[in-house]
Design a binder for these strands. Structure first.
Length: 274
DNA sequence: TTCCAGGAGAGAG
DNA sequence: CTCTCTCATGGA
């Protein structure tokens, strides 16, 4: 919930509160049991099916972790954070959120998303705290680019607005994206201004199920350069190495390394070498 | 004050 | 193809 995939979860005295697909969820894990409340009036079996999908619980995690547990560095990350999974997020929210993420820090990304949700989303709550659904493309398109500037999105405002317009007008089919192979979906996404290679990979990994995708941000770049290659490298070289080295579950490997470097420290990773 | 943040577009070489 | 500059904003 806190590893930088979703910007919508907040820990409040032992629970996580978040908004997913227009419902507020309140969740807590007790050993092998997940305790869940939803603001939506939905059948328990449907909610369970939804969460299994969202939390990627139907995937054999140990098989993936065994496949990428190939050196002391990632081994330490895996034993520290075993259980962390790649979420299957709603595509539109993921796309819009990572447009806002560029050249930005996590607290402010969360703030921007909170602002546009409060202004253009719908209220959803279990009581306290109140939260808001992520605004639809139609809502943002209708709001106008000036209203998005007012949300302090900076130069990202026109990027988000243009994407909202294209989707609201039916010029871009989000559903079609889901059935495309990785390379095609990525290329399609990069057609938008404001979506470059890194953001496209985030969308592919966090909402389209392409676990081979590798978002290369400043942290992943540092990790591959300093821990593995031992020299500065281009994005192309980093991607080629990582694909050859970690294989088909590259996206999962990346998330463990990324989270370890950010929370424990890159220095600690480097010291971990014998 | 200066630096940096889950980058990307535009232009130059 | 790669390199460089610039783009808002706010927290450290």
């Amino acid at each position: 919930m806190e590893c930088g995939q979703s910007f919508r979860w907040q820990p409040i005295n032992g629970w996580y509160y978040g908004v997913v697909d227009s419902r507020q969820l309140k969740i807590r894990q007790e050993k092998q049991t997940l305790i869940v409340e939803s603001s939506d009036d939905e059948r328990p079996d449907q909610l369970e099916a939804f969460l299994r999908r969202y939390l990627d619980l139907n995937r054999d995690l140990s098989a993936i972790l065994n496949a990428v547990d190939i050196d002391p560095f990632i081994h330490r990350a895996i034993e520290t954070f075993r259980g962390m999974r790649i979420l299957n997020q709603e595509v539109w929210e993921c796309l819009a959120s990572f447009i806002l993420s560029q050249n930005n820090n996590v607290p402010r990304i969360k703030g921007m998303i909170r602002t546009i949700s409060a202004r253009f989303g719908e209220k959803v709550t279990l009581g306290d705290p109140v939260d808001y659904s992520f605004p639809t493309p139609q809502a943002l398109a209708q709001a106008g680019v000036e209203a998005l500037y007012d949300c302090r999105l900076g130069y990202r405002a026109p990027y988000l607005w243009a994407v909202s317009l294209a989707i609201a007008a039916g010029e871009f089919d989000l559903e079609a994206l889901k059935s495309m192979p990785y390379a095609e979906a990525k290329r399609k996404l990069m057609g938008f201004k404001g979506i470059g290679e890194k953001v496209a990979d985030c969308i592919c990994l966090f909402s389209l199920g392409h676990v081979q995708a590798l978002p290369i941000d400043v942290w992943v770049k540092r990790i591959i350069e300093q821990v593995y290659l031992k020299h500065n490298a281009s994005i192309r070289e980093i991607r080629q190495f990582a694909q050859d080295y970690f294989g088909e579950y590259l996206g999962y490997a990346q998330q463990y390394l990324f989270h370890y470097a950010r929370t424990v420290g890159l220095e600690d990773m480097l010291r971990g070498e014998r």
